[in-house]
């Protein structure tokens, strides 16, 4: 660790004044950009008292938004979890041609604007989309309905688990698995008894980040949902609707739930990094 010697040898570190100034600058910057928005969310939510806050949360439309958000995450996260495990098994445990291309393609959703992530499905399944007329004739609705919301969420959270697992499994190598196979374990036994215990904390870490994004996604979902209150409104969308209706207390009340989710995610993430640093991938992001 370079920190210790530096504090004792001022020749290579900064002077105490400079040190204080830099720490102050960093804290000031983070206070303005991180702490202030959080404080704003909670103070605006409670601006008219606890009663108004609770009334905003107990609204049937708000409750249905909470339900939809949980449902969508409950579908999207497991799908991307299975994909993440399969992708990292193929990429980390085997050598094949075109691996770096596959890695780049898995990262693709990170570099696509959320709005475009929704648009691609509208162009496929929307009323004027390529499959739109066929879907309408068969009575299936995807866009402006829950399936579209799920698809858009799966798209934007696509790389999270894979991105966490691939570097971790690459670091761990293949010796353990090879030993298990040589000793007569089946493929499934090897995965369940050898690989899974090695990657469980990294897996949890990836799921945590995937879930936070799944519950919080706004742009992609906004394009496909149609904003039907009580039906296709997720929590982030409900925040927008309430805000645009100048119902600020209710908007910030729902927003405070999402902010709480973000804080819990950060706390769990920090706990994992602190406790199991060696068992999650070196690349934090």
């Amino acid at each position: 660790m370079p920190a210790e010697p530096h504090s004792r040898r001022p020749a290579v570190g900064e002077g105490p004044m400079m040190r204080l100034a830099l720490i102050g600058l960093a804290i000031l910057f983070l206070a303005a950009f991180l702490a202030l928005p959080l404080v704003a969310v909670f103070s605006q939510a409670l601006a008219k008292g606890v009663g108004a806050f609770l009334k905003g949360l107990a609204d049937p439309d708000a409750l249905s938004a909470v339900r939809l958000t949980l449902t969508v995450a409950a579908i999207a996260v497991p799908l991307n979890l299975v994909f993440g495990v399969a992708a990292s098994w193929a990429i980390a445990k085997f050598n094949f041609r075109g691996k770096s291309l596959l890695l780049a393609l898995i990262d693709l959703p990170f570099s696509v604007s959320p709005v475009i992530s929704g648009l691609v499905y509208v162009l496929l399944f929307g009323l004027h989309g390529s499959f739109g007329p066929w879907l309408r004739d068969h009575g299936v609705q995807i866009i402006f309905a829950v399936p579209g919301v799920v698809m858009a969420t799966v798209f934007v959270t696509f790389p999270f688990v894979a991105r966490e697992l691939i570097p971790l499994m690459q670091e761990q190598g293949v010796e353990d698995e090879e030993a298990a196979i040589v000793l007569g374990a089946s493929g499934w036994q090897t995965f369940r008894l050898v690989t899974l215990p090695n990657i469980r904390w990294g897996l949890l870490y990836g799921v945590l980040l995937c879930n936070a994004r799944a519950m919080g996604e706004f742009g992609a979902v906004s394009v496909v949902s149609g904003h039907i209150r009580g039906k296709t409104n997720t929590m982030p969308l409900h925040v927008e609707i309430l805000y645009n209706e100048y119902n600020f207390v209710a908007a910030f009340a729902v927003a405070s739930l999402l902010a709480l989710l973000a804080l819990v995610t950060l706390a769990a993430k920090a706990a994992l990094e602190w406790r199991f640093a060696d068992q999650i991938a070196a690349a934090k992001r």
Binding site: M235, P236, E240, A255, L266, K269
Partner: peptide, 14 residues
């Protein structure tokens, strides 16, 4: 990491 975890609409209105 808060900006990664906080939904963008919440950040927007805040």
């Amino acid at each position: 990491d808060l900006p990664f975890a906080l939904p963008t609409s919440v950040a927007g209105i805040a």
